[in-house]
Computed example of a mutant assay.
Amino acid sequence: MTGAGAVRALGALVTAPSPSDGSEFNSVTVSPGLPGFFAMFVLAVLVVLLAVDMTRRTRRVQARARVEERKDAERDAAQEREHAEEDAPGDEPEERPEADHGPGEGDAPPQEGRD
């Protein structure tokens, strides 16, 4: 068989009418039937399970983020307390600058010429 003969045989197969009983399509012959129902039911169950799993994972990620934020806030607060304790005078006496007194306030002015 040559290439041309193969093309003619293929063309005859493609154009041959498909086996049918000659009746028109109706809802019974076109419906997917019981196997189609089971396939769609399994797909629907899988979609619901995937949605539930996705929701659980999303909540878990959000909960971890909240815990991390809380830990960071506690760590920052502890660092601020440490800095406040370092800056605040503890047992050490506080140094006070000498106050400038104007005339008539505080001690008497020094007298000159006394020796």
Rank of each mutant, 00 (worst) to 15 (best):
T15S: 13
D115S: 09
V52K: 02
A78M: 03
N26W: 03
R114V: 09
P89I: 03
D72M: 12
R56C: 12
Q62P: 00
H83L: 15
L43Y: 01
R70N: 08
F41T: 11
P110G: 03
S31L: 05
N26T: 10
A73H: 06
A77H: 03
R64N: 05
P109A: 15
D87M: 09
A99T: 13
G113W: 00
A4P: 01
E82A: 15
V52Y: 02
G106M: 00
M54D: 07
E69K: 06
T29E: 07
V7L: 13
A99F: 02
V47H: 01
L50C: 12
L13K: 09
R66L: 04
V28P: 00
A51S: 07
E69M: 08
P35G: 01
E85I: 04
T58C: 01
F25A: 10
E80Q: 14
S31C: 09
P97G: 07
A12N: 05
P97K: 14
D53P: 01
D53T: 14
A44C: 08
V45A: 08
R81L: 15
G36K: 05
F38A: 13
R66M: 02
L13A: 14
L49K: 01
G90P: 02
E94T: 14
E69V: 08
T58E: 10
H101D: 08
M54Y: 10
T58Q: 15
R114A: 15
G22V: 04
A65T: 06
E92D: 14
D76G: 02
F41C: 05
Q111G: 09
F37D: 08
E112T: 11
R81P: 01
V30A: 10
D72T: 02
R60T: 02
E94H: 05
P35F: 07
D76A: 13
F41L: 15
G3A: 15
P19F: 00
P89F: 11
D115K: 06
L13F: 10
P17H: 01
E105S: 03
L50E: 14
V7I: 13
E98V: 11
A108M: 04
E85H: 13
A16R: 07
P17Q: 08
M54K: 05
T58P: 00
E80W: 04
E24P: 04
M40K: 11
R64S: 03
M40E: 10
E98W: 12
D100F: 13
G106E: 03
L13C: 12
A77E: 14
S20L: 00
R8W: 02
K71I: 10
P32R: 11
G106Y: 03
M1T: 11
R8Q: 00
